[in-house]
């Protein structure tokens, strides 16, 4: 199985909307890739991630020729959810519970053994804060923990939705290092972001969404070259806001 994700001609439309959120979308991501997903607000990044994570139910408004995720058809979502990790843009944690309590709850729902909780606490570098309430953590620590929850089941495919929004450079670098570690371990990563420098630093594959269409996809070096990323991005999308 060459591809972690293999999608052809995906059309997605929300109920009550007369506009398609994704149009004739083709996406192939090889296993072990670090895929950067770019696009302005409203381009369809969240819709694509929601489709991949199973957050959108397949119905008459969602059509595709092919949609295989980790070798399973999208309809067999139950089969690949246990191999999927997802870190939402929001800090999706319980602020009144401790680091340990949060991780334990999500691990139990994922049916991950408790040893994974200890591993993740160590991985996100919060060993000395495991009994602190999430509300007492800094923004960077919360982001690390938010990412940590997505790793409790040792995923083969990790989907990250703007994981570095609003954090200090130190925590950002910490997250970058850890994500590259995961790539080296063979995990496929999909990384949605507005920061072009992050794509340059981390990703080997890139896709640019605009108006629900994938307007560019391929190796980062081919799409952006080695020059000014922002200039190339503006040429591709025609919009000034990344």
């Amino acid at each position: 199985m060459k591809y972690a994700i293999d999608i052809q001609a995906l059309e997605l439309q929300y109920a009550g909307s007369n506009r398609k959120a994704l149009t004739n979308l083709n996406l192939q991501i090889a296993r072990g890739s670090f895929f950067g997903l770019l696009g302005p607000n409203g381009a369809g990044k969240t819709s694509l991630i929601s489709f991949l994570c199973g957050q959108i139910e397949t119905n008459s408004r969602t059509q595709y020729q092919k949609a295989e995720i980790l070798g399973y058809d999208r309809q067999q979502i139950k089969n690949y959810k246990s191999k999927l990790g997802y870190a939402p843009q929001e800090i999706a944690l319980y602020p009144t519970l401790t680091v340990l309590e949060n991780l334990t709850y999500f691990a139990r729902l994922m049916q991950a053994p408790f040893i994974e909780v200890a591993r993740v606490i160590d991985w996100v570098g919060l060993g000395d804060r495991k009994n602190s309430k999430v509300s007492e953590l800094s923004g960077g620590m919360k982001r690390r923990l938010n990412l940590g929850v997505a790793l409790l089941n040792r995923p083969e495919l990790l989907i990250l939705d703007e994981p570095t929004v609003g954090i200090d450079p130190e925590s950002r670098n910490f997250i970058f290092e850890k994500l590259l570690e995961l790539k080296n371990e063979g995990v496929t990563l999909i990384y949605s972001t507005h920061y072009l420098e992050e794509v340059k630093k981390l990703c080997d594959q890139t896709g640019v969404l605009l108006g629900g269409r994938m307007i560019a996809i391929g190796p980062r070096a081919e799409i952006f070259g080695e020059g000014d990323l922002e200039k190339r991005y503006l040429e591709l999308t025609g919009v000034e806001t990344v």
Binding site: C53, Q55, K81, Y86, P88, Q89, L93, Y94, V149
Partner: peptide
Amino acid sequence: RLGVFKRLLSFPI
């Protein structure tokens, strides 16, 4: 609001 539901949707539940 926290996004916990969104996260749980990607869980096997």
